[in-house]
Write a protein that binds this DNA or RNA. Sequence first.
DNA 1: CACTATGTTTTCAA
DNA 2: ATTGAAAACATAGT
Length: 273
Amino acid sequence: MPELPEVETYRRLLDELLVQQQLVTLEVLDAHVLAVPEDELRQAVVGATVTATHRLGKNCFLELSTGQVLALHFGMTGDVGAYRHDHDRPRFTRVAFHLADGLRVAFIDPRKFGRIRLAGSIAEFQRAKKIGPDALAITAEEMQQGLGKKKTLIKPALLDQRLTAGLGNWIVDEVLFQAQIHPERLANTLTAEEFQALHAAIQLVLRTAIEHEAVYRHFPASFLIHAREWDDSATPGTEAHRFCPRHPKVEIGKHYVGGRATYHCPSCQLLAT
DNA sequence: CACTATGTTTTCAA
DNA sequence: ATTGAAAACATAGT
């Protein structure tokens, strides 16, 4: 589930567990998630101390005492865990960083779309990956400048990490719902007021999600996310509710925009201006 | 078995 | 240079 709020939550955990700790062993259980040769990574990591953590969009960085930076991307299913003994190792742990006191920090990723990279600096990584300003840092004016020129639908534009980094599929739907903008509006037809509303919605959604450590079922009832199917029947009281939080009689629609499943309220989010 | 999935990257076309 | 559609990646869950 790693969009910006999840990655920020992971970063906070990694910060607590790793900062000022020395990495003594690199355990690679599945090299598929490594985007650098294993030996090179081991050489960079073993013996180094983590001096700080950072986040940019959906990327988390571990700054090493050597000056190098470990860049973690969690793909679609990445997660972070901690354990002390092999028999407690989380399922789907692909890489583990061992600390001097025995704690092991796991990079977990069932579907293996996540990647661990090495970079000289965050700035270098950002340039190489063409990552835009973080979604929590970007201003409404910058958004208007970046997205306002795009002759594409607003939803794919918001998902484009080069324009603003950190928004993923469900967050974009939530943001567009909160800003009451239809996902298929052309980006270059949005007004300054609409960019202001988008910016405010991004702040609201991201801050709320981080506050709840990205546990969706704890989000306010005013959020569209409850119409998604994930947290359904398993726990009583968490069934997907199919109606708009603002229009109890209007069913949330599901269709595909830019190839991605998209939920929106046909009453709040109109195509015509 | 059929189908979906929170993300990115590539490829091919218009 | 843009934009878009589709496929690919690897696998779990329903």
